[in-house]
Computed example of a mutant assay.
Amino acid sequence: MRLEDNTRNALTALQYESGKPLDIDSLKKVLDSYNITDIDYNDITIYKSSGENIDSPIGNDSGAAIHHYNEEKDINDVYYIFRGPEVDLDAPDDVVYDAFGVDAGRYGDGHSLGGHLIVSVALIEKNFDDVRGLNDAPVNLKQLASLDSDFVDYLESATDVLDISDIPEEELVLLARDFYAAEANAISHTRVKGEPLYAQSIPYTFYPGASIHYLGDMETPEFPDVLTPRTPWPGLTEVFSWHKCRFRSGCL
């Protein structure tokens, strides 16, 4: 089950639609609408952060994983979807880094703070093929250091500094980009003009990734960053589109 971007957008939007929880029926309705009819739904398991098919709840209805598995047909695809939950960017317990206990990493989508979650998960787990942050909040370097011991070891070996707070922030961002370079190649960001976006210069945060895709009316003013002017990171590819649409309409 290789889902195209429009289908993944529709599933992400479904997380926001009142009365339409992500379950087998709503999944089938979305896939049918995109003429995907060759799925054996006995091969589908849906994990929910609210507790369904996992040992215990790890949040509200802010995230789900769709696992398509059939050993005989060599199918093992996982799609993680996070909407914008009420989380604190400085609170590491809110990062669902074990991804509901599903071992295989494949695809991930997250909107707003949900984008912060899925990108953080992808950096830490290091086994995702394609991750999209949709108007996503940045990842937090202190949070990553609290969850990823390999990152901490790298920082200590590169700087001889034991406390991350003693590393100048600009240097810390560069070190993080170097350490997570391979994982960042699987990450992209999609931004809809006119939609809210977190300031890119919040202390100890950054946006890892290989590309940014812009949608909407390009005549709309640039996303505001009241702290500093926006500067793309080295190696970033920016893609612009003139589609006049909004994320929640499912037209990304």
Rank of each mutant, 00 (worst) to 15 (best):
G19M: 10
S120N: 08
N140Y: 08
H67K: 02
D94V: 02
N185M: 10
P224T: 14
I75M: 13
G250K: 03
V139W: 12
E72N: 12
S62F: 11
D103Q: 12
A182C: 01
H116I: 01
D90Q: 08
L27Y: 10
L11W: 11
S241A: 04
V87M: 11
S18N: 04
G115P: 12
P196H: 14
V131S: 06
R2A: 05
L175C: 07
E72T: 13
F247I: 10
L144G: 08
T7F: 04
R230N: 08
N6H: 15
K20R: 06
K244E: 14
Y34E: 01
P57L: 06
K29Y: 08
H189P: 08
M1F: 06
A10F: 02
E86N: 07
I202P: 06
G63T: 04
E169R: 10
G133I: 10
N60W: 09
Y79F: 15
A122G: 12
D98G: 03
D55N: 05
F100T: 00
E156W: 02
V30Q: 06
G250E: 00
T37V: 05
D163Q: 11
T37Q: 06
V87W: 12
V152H: 05
D166Q: 07
G250M: 01
D93N: 14
F82Y: 11
D153I: 03
A210Y: 01
S50E: 09
E219S: 15
N42M: 04
P196L: 13
H116F: 14
L3C: 03
K28Y: 05
D93Y: 15
A210W: 01
L172R: 07
K193P: 02
L31K: 13
W233A: 13
R230E: 11
E195F: 03
I212A: 07
S112N: 02
P85G: 05
